[in-house]
Each structure stands twice: as C-alpha cells, then as structure tokens.
C-alpha cells in the first residue's frame, strides 16, 4: 500500500507474516520430533513405570547436579531470574496483555508500569551479562554456536527497543514502537528454527529422556 509507515507495516503485514511463519515452523518442528518417538527401543525393559521416571527427570533436570552446583551457580540463578523477569515484562504489561487478548480472546490482570520497567531492565541486564559470560567463559564459548548468539540477539532486541519506546529514549515513539514490533516479529520468525524452540521442547524432552532412562534402568 502506498504511504505505509513503518508502524503500519509492523502492525499489519509484518505481524501477519511473522505469526504465520511462527505457527508453521513450531508445528513442523513438534510434529517432526513426535515422529521420532516411533523409534522402538529394542532393549529389554528394566522398569515398567516410565511415567514416573519421565516426571522425575523433569524435576531433577531443573536443578544442577550437586557436583556441578558450585561451578555454575551464577548461571543457574541468573538463568531462572532472567526467565522470571522476562515473563513478568512480557505477560503483565498492560499494552502487551491487550495484544495477547486481541489474538487469544481473553485477558488477565496487569501490573503497574514501575514493576514492568524494573523487570524489563533486570531481564535486559541479565541477558547481556549471560551473553558476555557465554562469549568469555572458555567452556561455554566452546559449546556455543551461531544459533546461541543469534537467538540471544533476537531476544535482546525486543527488550531494548521495548524499554526505549517505554521510556521515550532515542527515536520518536511511533518509530521506536514500530522497531519494537518488528524486532518481536524477527524473533517470531527465527524462533521455530532455533534453540528458542526450547520453550516448547524442554519439558517434553526431559520427560522423554526420563522414560528412556526408566526403560534402560538408569538412575538419573
């Protein structure tokens, strides 16, 4: 359309395409992964209560093994704090809830802006700290791929543009808002094809590992 502003694009076609790609990609990945479950384990079952083993793994793998605890404490705590701060900012900011409501059809209570601003700032700072650690820590550096860095970048962008739009820093509000939406759309597009899929995969994967361990009689 002629004369379409950046914001118009971000609120219209940009959003539509991003959501389509996101839905397509996420379902593609999940369905594909589910088919892998069809691979039969030919070994003799050592234990029969797989469900218990599966659920146990979800719990045990949510905290670091005792032997490593001290070495990865920072990562452990800041990882949880970062996710918590992110969820507060994303899910309890009034304008965000209106966005979700327009798609989902229902809403929930919001928090005052000061809390959102605080959690947004905490999330941004923690993610930057974790990124620096990843880039400098010898072991983490070794096991990091381009996927890790790109995924962090596409999550960091909405945080930074969101805070800037909120605080009226930098460009004019409508431009900042457009950049915020576009950065979210970039994240949605990158999401299914990257490690960001962990949001959908983590718990089922742990469960699956647990049942596998159960079958083999591994205690872990």
């Amino acid at each position: 359309m002629e004369n379409m502003t950046l914001l118009d694009f971000a609120r219209g076609p940009g959003l539509q395409w991003a959501l389509w790609i996101f839905c397509l990609g996420v379902v593609w990945r999940i369905v594909g992964a589910m088919y892998l479950l069809g691979n039969k384990d030919l070994s003799k079952a050592r234990r029969t209560n797989y469900i218990r083993s599966g659920l146990r793994a979800i719990l045990t793998r949510s905290t670091p093994a005792e032997a490593f605890e001290e070495k990865i404490r920072f990562q452990h705590i800041s990882g949880y704090a970062w996710h918590l701060a992110l969820f507060v900012s994303v899910l309890f900011f009034a304008p965000h809830i209106l966005f979700f409501e327009s798609i989902l059809g229902f809403s929930w209570p919001h928090l005052p802006n000061t809390i959102i601003l605080f959690s947004g700032a905490v999330a941004t700072a923690l993610l930057i700290a974790l990124l620096i650690r990843r880039a400098t820590h010898p072991v983490q550096r070794l096991i990091s791929t381009a996927d890790d860095y790109i995924s962090i970048a596409v999550v960091l962008l909405p945080l930074i543009t969101g805070l800037a739009a909120f605080a009226h820093i930098g460009l004019r509000y409508e431009t900042m808002l457009a950049l915020h939406l576009l950065s979210v759309e970039l994240m949605l597009i990158w999401y299914p094809f990257s490690k960001l899929m962990h949001a959908f995969m983590t718990f089922p994967a742990r469960y699956q590992t647990g049942t596998f361990f159960g079958h083999r009689g591994i205690k872990a």
Partner: peptide, 30 residues
C-alpha cells in the same frame, strides 16, 4: 483498538499455517 494491538489476520490463516506445518512435519518424518 488499543495501540499495542495489530492486524494479526484471521484465526483460519493461523490454523492454515499450523496445518501446513503439520504436513511438513509428517513429510520430513517420512
């Protein structure tokens, strides 16, 4: 419409995208 909402299209379009995703998933598994 609140400023933070956008024209996200239709539910049918999203379901269509999800359906295409499922088909792709099955195809790649096969």
């Amino acid at each position: 419409d609140a400023l933070s909402t956008g024209d996200w299209g239709t539910r049918e379009a999203l379901l269509g995208a999800a359906g295409a995703g499922a088909a792709l998933g099955v195809a790649s598994a096969i």
